[in-house]
């Protein structure tokens, strides 16, 4: 497989598939015309409009906050679930935990959203918490369904991992917690990164669940976008997407450059 043409070819085609729509929305963010399907000449007016629209900017900021917080907590909880299921053998609540970590994947979004909404309403009536709904309730909902995704990813990594190292450390008298942090964690780190990215993406993209569990003044970006697409995608939303891609790409570029420098330094 070393010099095969097949792999690079599929990868390139895959990236074309992934980036074609992105390219089109970048192009149309510079479109003079309001209609996203007609080219009306080059213009940056939508960028100006975007920065005058506190609604979109505010929603973007809320979405970002929600996604970072819920992805981070979901990774912790999801990893615990995966670890417990793969390493703890039999324990009393095992079947229950397996079921509860699987079912959120199957639950249609509408049901997840509605059932959590009902839960939050009755919790508020009985416990007084959460008082009203908003960012907190969105975060809780997102953690719950992202957790299941993280668990699947981490579990697959744990399944593919050589346990003998862990066992060796254990035999040498290391405590389980120590083994986990010093040995298991570094080995499954790629899965944690993958899981975090997945959870972050899921949270950032969620429309249905957030629409149910949100409250006044806490509209996420997908909600604002969806409320506008009735009239077709508004070009200022394309402009926002372009800016996000630009910033992330820049960040990645800088990180790459530093990494390459570090590697070169190592060689010298």
């Amino acid at each position: 497989m070393k010099r095969g043409i097949f792999l690079p070819l599929v990868t390139v085609l895959g990236f074309v598939f992934l980036y074609a729509p992105i390219l089109s929305l970048i192009v149309f963010s510079f479109n003079e015309s309001r209609l996203v399907t007609v080219w009306g000449g080059f213009s940056t007016r939508w960028y100006g409009q975007l920065f005058r629209d506190p609604q979109i900017l505010n929603a973007a900021w809320i979405s970002l906050r929600v996604a970072v917080v819920s992805a981070s907590i979901a990774v912790v909880l999801g990893t615990l679930v995966a670890f417990v299921l793969m390493r703890f053998g039999r324990f009393r609540s095992r079947a229950l935990l397996t079921g509860m970590a699987t079912a959120p994947l199957v639950m249609p979004e509408v049901i997840t959203g509605l059932s959590l909404l009902l839960l939050f309403v009755s919790m508020e009536q009985l416990l007084g918490w959460p008082a009203g709904r908003g960012e907190t309730t969105i975060i809780i909902a997102h953690i719950t369904f992202c957790l299941a995704y993280v668990a699947v990813v981490v579990q697959s990594r744990l399944a593919g991992m050589d346990q003998s190292v862990e066992e060796a450390a254990m035999d040498l008298g290391a405590r389980p917690v120590r083994v986990f942090f010093d040995i298991t964690l570094p080995i499954i780190a790629p899965a944690l990164v993958a899981g975090w990215l997945l959870a972050f993406t899921l949270s950032l993209d969620d429309l249905v669940i957030a629409s149910f569990v949100t409250g006044p003044g806490a509209s996420t970006l997908p909600m604002v976008i969806f409320s506008k697409v009735r009239l077709g995608v508004s070009p200022d939303v394309n402009a926002l997407a372009t800016i996000i891609i630009g910033i992330v790409a820049l960040g990645v570029g800088i990180a790459m450059w530093q990494m390459r420098r570090a590697i070169r330094r190592d060689r010298e």
Binding site: L18, P21, L25, T37, L197, T201, I225, F226, V233
Partner: peptide, 21 residues
Amino acid sequence: TAVILPFWTSFLLRVYAWQGF
């Protein structure tokens, strides 16, 4: 990162972009 990057733009935008295609 390049695999994930497109997914940090809103899902709806991407679906609408496909409509355009």
